[in-house]
């Protein structure tokens, strides 16, 4: 196990209670999707894991030290004044990695994210999908053990989204990292995940955990199989259940 959330609750200054009684384990190396209705606290859970906010009650525990963590937002969240390479270098620069090494590692990360040849491009010269690839390259350049993703592909069109799904799975397999992936798409979670945690409406908590066994190598054809349909059906049913 990599980390666990125990009976976590979180309210905001506005009085909104985002999470109540959230208990969730994240195993090392798994691809865990958090699925739930809008405003159910999925993103809040992600920010708690990242340590960007602290819980009001309960605890976020890590097995061992807090792992090197990457974060990908719904928006690409790039620095518009910096080219793709400099953006991808961010974590390395902040950690004081020597410039030459940082550039080499960032260039490699960009290539792995499918952006070889776009190192010098500025964000505004890139499409939405390509900007998201820079954002992913920035996250994997620091070789994170844990990658947190907050509806990263929600704003993309379907072909870009499916291409990014497949490329993300490749990165996940190659790097052996743990991914916690927030989405509101049943089909996306069914395609990507080894496990899905279904959230209740606000205040959010996990109402059902669904383990999936997708084939290690999957492509578009997997979306047409009965196994995929069954997985999507289980997630969908859990979402609709009124506990």
């Amino acid at each position: 196990m990599l980390l666990s959330l125990r009976d976590v609750s979180k309210s905001f200054a506005s009085g909104t209670q985002a999470l109540k009684g959230l208990t969730l384990d994240v195993g090392a190396g798994e691809f865990l999707s958090l699925v739930g209705p809008s405003g159910c606290g999925k993103s809040t859970a992600l920010r708690l894991i990242a340590g960007l906010i602290a819980p009001d009650g309960g605890a976020v525990n890590f097995a061992g030290d807090k792992p090197e963590t990457g974060f990908v937002f719904q928006e690409p969240t790039l620095m518009p004044w910096a080219n793709a390479l400099t953006n991808a270098r961010l974590a390395l620069d902040l950690e004081g990695v020597a410039r030459g090494e940082a550039e080499a590692r960032a260039a490699e990360a960009l290539a792995r994210a499918g952006l070889k040849g776009f190192e010098q491009a500025f964000p505004r010269e890139l499409s939405g999908g390509m900007k998201m690839r820079v954002s992913i390259a920035r996250a994997i350049a620091a070789k994170p053990k844990l990658l947190l993703m907050d509806e990263p592909f929600a704003a993309l069109d379907e072909p870009a989204r499916q291409a990014l799904n497949d490329d993300l799975l490749t990165l996940w397999r190659e790097d052996g990292m743990t991914i916690v992936f927030v989405t509101h798409s049943v089909y996306e979670s069914a395609y990507l995940s080894t496990r899905v945690a279904v959230f209740s409406a606000r205040p959010g908590r996990v109402v059902e955990e669904i383990a999936l066994k997708p084939p290690a190598q999957r492509d578009e054809r997997y979306r047409l199989t009965p196994e995929f349909a069954a997985a999507a059906g289980r997630i969908s049913a859990a979402l609709k259940a009124k506990p």
């Binding site: 990242a50 960007l52 974060f71 937002f73 928006e75 620095m79 961010l90 974590a91 902040l94």
Partner: peptide, 28 residues
């Protein structure tokens, strides 16, 4: 960008790094 500030913090950036690498270019 507040998400970028969060990202800088996640990567352990100092206030100086956030000022020089993020806030000043944003203000330019």
């Amino acid at each position: 960008d507040h998400n970028l500030i969060d990202l800088f913090k996640l990567y352990g950036a100092s206030r100086w790094q956030i000022l020089v690498r993020l806030q000043l270019p944003s203000a330019l």
